[in-house]
Design a protein around this nucleic acid. Structure first.
Lengths: 229, 229
DNA sequence: AAAAGAATATGATAATTGTCATGTTTTGCG
DNA sequence: CGCAAAACATGACAATTATCATATTCTTTT
């Protein structure tokens, strides 16, 4: 199950693909493979990271606790994502905590590998920049959605996002199953409000549910709703 | 008024300080100095940028229009900021528009200068990365504030932010004067709600106003309020 | 200086969303 | 299996915020 980075498919999806054979070898020698159980943290807000996590399988939520005790999920990181890059590069403490949403397999890569490669390989640096630029754009979009859209619209968007980014299983259910509370924390609302809206969507035929599982039944309808029609 | 980048103080505040003498010379030869009047755009959302803007003076709001016609200010860029980096690096269309909040002086730097320096000078690349990492962290914080704080708390934070980042004049008024509408668009609320809260803050002695100008009268009080006490 | 047009201000009201209470269902576990 | 705990669900109500209407003040233009 553990293997060499050089052969890792997951690498194709992230900035590590811009590393040279040599650099990859070093990473591979230094990396530590870890399994993380659903609900366990990769790291906590405010911690100092001495490396990044490359996600091989499973999903992690990156969230921040607010003074009132709720946490806002800022991002969901899946297979191929590199977690902790920002803090390592800025050489700051993390501003988010990372918790496994389901069982995960990750590789921990010491920051020295990342930082020295950044200094030596411009292609890698530019690749990391591109990823960060993309993340920044997404963050901007989230800000706009948070301030301009209603909770209902945001819930609709969340489902569309989940379909787009994690896909559906053979029966049409969203592959990534989140608790109602997690959905609420993604959307930025109270759990009860979220549940209420899910019930409403079900009643109106936008979605179907089976336990925690959710199936998008009327994508067009959800899209219109998310746009405000 | 126009001058060489090598001697520009503003450069000290942004990633251009990591450029070599030589690279700076090239930038200096290629750059175009521009004055932009209050209210005029530097660029519009969706445009393709062929360079970045280095702010020498004045302030620009970076905002995004939503379907309902309001625009959300995502960032205020002041002296020393480089605007448009994200789009140039990702080689994408801009996701935000930039409008001058007051009269501005900027230098337009063609993207070729930026991109080639990124490839050749790892120090520069890492410096840009650091800045982007910082922006990303700030964006995450904004997301959390948007979803977890009340409008009142966000208005309080906005004033504290303005003091921190733009300072006060000799009479204690915030140096950056924004219209009520702009403040509302920073905070993500309706203009009327924003005005109402400003009135309330005035009544409660948190702030003083004189026309559009705002003076923080009780910083402790505002801070407590922003934290939820 | 007067008129026109913004921007600011405030009231009244409606819509959205959060909170608390209380069931019901599902899940995990000895 | 059966029980406890957690997650889900829904009602009732309160708080927050948006919207619409309408003044009032400030700015700009002529």
């Amino acid at each position: 199950m553990e293997s060499r980075c050089e052969n890792c498919i997951v690498r194709q999806f992230n900035s590590l693909r811009a590393m040279t054979k040599d650099e990859l070898k070093k990473v591979s020698d230094a990396k530590v493979y870890k399994k993380i159980k659903k609900g366990d943290p990769l790291f906590e807000e405010g911690q100092k990271l001495d490396g990044v996590f490359c996600v091989r399988d499973g999903v992690s939520k990156l969230s921040k606790l607010s003074t009132n005790g709720k946490d806002q999920v800022v991002k969901l990181a899946t297979k191929g994502s590199v977690i902790g890059q920002r803090s390592v590069i800025a050489e700051e403490h993390t501003n988010l905590s990372a918790v496994a949403v389901n069982d995960m397999e990750v590789c921990f890569v010491p920051k020295e590998n990342i930082l020295s490669t950044l200094q030596r390989n411009p292609d890698f640096a530019v690749e990391v920049l591109r990823h960060m630029a993309h993340d920044l754009k997404e963050a901007d979009d989230v800000i706009v959605n948070m301030s301009q859209k209603t909770v209902k619209q945001r819930v609709a968007e969340a489902f569309l996002y989940l379909k787009q980014n994690f896909g559906e299983d053979k029966n049409g259910f969203l592959r990534l199953t989140l608790s109602r509370e997690d959905i609420a924390n993604v959307v930025g609302t109270a759990t009860e409000s979220c549940i209420r809206i899910i019930s409403e969507f079900k009643k109106k035929g936008f979605i179907d549910t089976s336990g925690k599982k959710i199936k998008i039944a009327d994508e067009r309808g959800l899209k219109d709703l998310a746009q405000g029609f």
